[in-house]
C-alpha cells in the first residue's frame, strides 16, 4: 500500500524544520523507551542510515549514536552508509517488526544498498525491540494520548491489513 496523493501533497509545502522536529521527537521517545536497541546495534550505532519512503517526497537520515534525524527533500540525496527504500507503511512495519524484512526483499517491495552488515544489525535490533509507534506517538500527546494512540493504531491496522503477521 502506498500513501494516497491527498496525504502526500501537504508534505511538499510543510517546512522541513517542522517535519524534522516531529521526527526527532518521535525518534528520541523511541530511543528512551528501548535502550536495548543500542546494545544490539553494537558498533553500527555510528552508521548513517538513510530511509527513503518511495511514496513521500522526503528522505530521513538517522544516526543512532548521536540521536539525530535529518530530513531532506527527495531532490537531495544525503551521503549515507546504508540505505533502505520502500513504501512508508512497510518501512514503519519493519520498524515495529510487524513485517518480515527478508520476505519484503524477496518480493522486491524493499531495496537496500550500502553497508549490509549495518543494515542487518539494524533490522535485527528493531525486530527485537517491540517498538509500538502508535503508543510512542500517543505518549507525546499529553491528555489526548489514548485518543491519538487509538487513532494511530486504527490507521496502522488498515494500512497493514493482510501484511502483518499475527504476532503477539
Amino acid at each position: 500500500m502506498t500513501l494516497p496523493p491527498a496525504l502526500v501533497a501537504p508534505v511538499d509545502f510543510a517546512p522541513l524544520w517542522l517535519i524534522e522536529r516531529a521526527a526527532r521527537t518521535i525518534f528520541s521517545s523511541v530511543l528512551r523507551a528501548h535502550p536495548d536497541l543500542f546494545e544490539r546495534l553494537g558498533e553500527y550505532r555510528q552508521t548513517r542510515y538513510l530511509f527513503c519512503p518511495l511514496d513521500l517526497p522526503l528522505n530521513f537520515l538517522v544516526v543512532p549514536a548521536s540521536k539525530t534525524v535529518h530530513v531532506s527533500r527527495k531532490t537531495q540525496r544525503p551521503v549515507s552508509d546504508a540505505c533502505i527504500e520502500g513504501p512508508l507503511v512497510l518501512l514503519l512495519g519493519l520498524l515495529e517488526g510487524r513485517c518480515d524484512a527478508d520476505a519484503l526483499f524477496f518480493s522486491r517491495e524493499l531495496s537496500v544498498t550500502g553497508d549490509m552488515e549495518a543494515m542487518l544489525a539494524l533490522r535485527n535490533a528493531l525486530d527485537d525491540s517491540a517498538i509500538d509507534l502508535p503508543g510512542e506517538i500517543g505518549s507525546l500527546a499529553g491528555p489526548l494520548a489514548p485518543l491519538v494512540a487509538g487513532a494511530a493504531r486504527y490507521v496502522r491496522k488498515r494500512a497493514l491489513e493482510g501484511r502483518d503477521a499475527t504476532w503477539n
Partner: peptide, 13 residues
C-alpha cells in the same frame, strides 16, 4: 533463525 519475529510467528503457527 535469521528471519524476523513476524516470519517466525507466522510459520510456527
Amino acid at each position: 533463525r535469521q528471519r524476523g519475529k513476524a516470519y517466525v510467528a507466522e510459520v510456527v503457527s
